[in-house]
Amino acid sequence: MLEELFPNVIPEDLWEATLETFYMTSIAILGTLIFGILLGLLLFLTDSGNLWQNRFINFITATIVNVFRAIPFIILILLLFPFTDFLIGTIRGWKAALPALIFGAAPFYARLVEIGLKEIDKGVIEAAKTMGAKTHTIIFKVLLPESMPALISGLTVTGIALIGYTAIAGIIGAGGLGDLAYMKGFQRRDFDVVLACTILIIVIVFIFQYIGDTLSKLIDKR
């Protein structure tokens, strides 16, 4: 039955491409999480009226974030070729897609982190100050835990965008389902391969959304 519907699909290839997409996305999400939270915290803390209030650093951070968000992802990959070559040692394969994926997604996530942090009740931060809390205590024991549901749902949204990015990266040889769909499917006019890849990507997105929603709900005690 499956062979009739998808005559040109080689299961081993499909499985390998799925794994590549999975690795690419997972590591990119991890990188995005780390850099996104760092940037988001920096944006939030240096904003006026906050703990590290600093116009200059806030402006610089905001500019970097905005510039990288403004560059279309396909162009970002091309622009980062030299950097990727230097860092990874190659510009081919799923590992070579990571810098562009993280550079593309982290600034987007940083803004979502900033929004999440801004939604924390200012009074709670004030209360921590009255108890004599240091800034790092406020960050790790107030800011991050109190914005956790927003951080998680933001990461879900970003993660799903990242899955889309990995497919785009596939077109220039990053491997994964996007690569398979374009090279083996579109180029050879085997549209059943394109369809199979699409279905798998949709499944991955759904799984992602489900995990994100469940986690966010579980952690939200408001």
Partner: peptide, 19 residues
């Protein structure tokens, strides 16, 4: 910061950590 530990404060909107 040390001294503030000896000055308790309560608020109109309680300001508890929901988490």
């Amino acid at each position: 910061r040390k001294k503030r530990q000896k000055i308790g404060m309560i608020f109109q909107h309680f300001n508890l950590l929901w988490s």
